Amino acid sequence: MTAPVPAPDGQAGPAAAPHFTIPAHHDDAPAGYVAPGMPGAPAPYAYAPLPTVARRPNPGGAVAAAVGAALVGGLAYGFVMKAIDHEIGWLVFGVAAVIAWPLGRIGGRNPVLPVAGAVLSVLALFLGQVFGVTLYLHEFTGLSVGELLGAEVDLVLEGWKANLAAMDALFYGIAVFEGFVLTRRMVRD
C-alpha cells in the first residue's frame, strides 16, 4: 500500500503513487525481444528498392534516331538560313550535338558510332544548305519545293555550288570533328 511521504517542511504530504516494476524479461517474449520504440529496437520497415534493369546498348536504334535527328537538324538549319537571310555556320555545333545525343545515350560504347556521328553531322549540314537554297529558289522562281527537289534538283545543286565559300570548308571540318567528339562524350557510363 501507500504511505504518506513527509513533505520538506515536516508535514505529511499526499500519498506516494504506487511504484510498479516491469521485469526485464518476459517469459512469453522471445529471447532478444525489444519492444517497438525502445532503445535498440529495429527501425520501422522500409520499402525495398525495386531492382533496376540495366539497359543494353542498342546501336541500331541509336543510328535510326540519329538519322531522324540529322533530318530534323538539317531542315531547321535551312529554315534558319532562309529566315535570317544569312547562313550561320556556327549552328553546326548544335546540329552535331542533336545528332550525337542519341548515338551516345542509346548506342553505348560502340566504336562505329562516333564515325556515324561525324558522317551524319556533315550530311545534316549539307542537307540544311541545300534546303536553304531550295527555299530561296522557291521564292525567286515560283517553283514548288517538290519540283525543285525533284525534276529541278540540278538547279538547286548549281545554286548550292554558287553559294559555297571558303568558310564552308571550315564548317564542314567542324561538323566532322564535333560529330565525332560529341558522340564519344555523350556515352553514358
Results as ranks from 00 to 15, higher is better:
Gly142Asp: 03
Phe131Trp: 10
Pro42His: 03
Gly179Trp: 00
Phe93Gly: 09
Gly61Pro: 04
Pro39Leu: 08
Val122Asp: 04
Trp160Gly: 00
Met81Arg: 11
Phe140Tyr: 12
Gly142Tyr: 00
Ala43Cys: 04
Ala24Trp: 07
Ile106Leu: 01
Glu87Pro: 07
Asp28Glu: 09
Gly107Pro: 00
Val119Phe: 12
Val130Ile: 09
Leu113Cys: 10
Gly142Thr: 05
Glu147Ser: 05
Phe177Trp: 02
Val187Phe: 02
Tyr33Trp: 15
Leu170Tyr: 13
Pro14Asp: 11
Thr183Trp: 02
Leu123Ser: 03
Pro44Arg: 11
Ala66Gly: 05
Phe131Val: 07
Gly32Asn: 14
Ala48Asp: 14
Lys161Asn: 07
Arg185Ser: 01
Val156Arg: 01
Arg105Lys: 15
Ile106Ala: 01
Ala7Asn: 14
Ala70Asp: 02
Tyr33Ile: 05
Asn163Cys: 05
Thr134Gln: 01
Ala7Met: 12
Phe131Ile: 09
Ala54Trp: 08
Ala151Val: 14
Ala83Val: 07
Ala76Leu: 13
Ser144His: 03
Gly13Ala: 13
Pro44Asn: 14
Pro39Asp: 11
Tyr172Thr: 00
Asp85His: 11
Val145Arg: 08
Ala97Arg: 01
His26Leu: 14
Ala83Trp: 12
Val112Met: 14
Leu149Arg: 05
Phe131Met: 08
Leu75Phe: 06
Phe126Val: 03
Glu178Ser: 07
Ala7Cys: 05
Pro30Thr: 06
Val67Thr: 01
Asp189His: 10
Glu139Asp: 12
Val176Ala: 07
Leu120Ala: 13
Ala17Ser: 09
Ala48Gln: 15
Asn163Gly: 11
Met38Ser: 12
Ser121Asn: 02
Asp28Tyr: 08
Pro30Trp: 08
Leu120Gln: 03
Val187Cys: 04
Gly159Pro: 04
Gly94Leu: 03
Val72Phe: 15
Ala46Gly: 15
Val98Ala: 04
Arg184Cys: 06
Ile84Met: 15
Gly128Arg: 00
Ala66Arg: 00
His25Thr: 10
Thr183His: 04
Asp28Ser: 04
Thr141Trp: 13
Ala124Arg: 06
His86Tyr: 13
Ala62Thr: 04
Asp9Val: 04
Met38Asp: 10
Glu152Thr: 03
Leu75Ala: 14
Leu50Gln: 07
Ala124His: 03
Met81Gln: 13
Gly74Val: 00
Ala62Cys: 02
Leu127Asp: 11
Tyr172Glu: 02
Val115Tyr: 12
Ala83Gln: 07
Met167Ala: 13
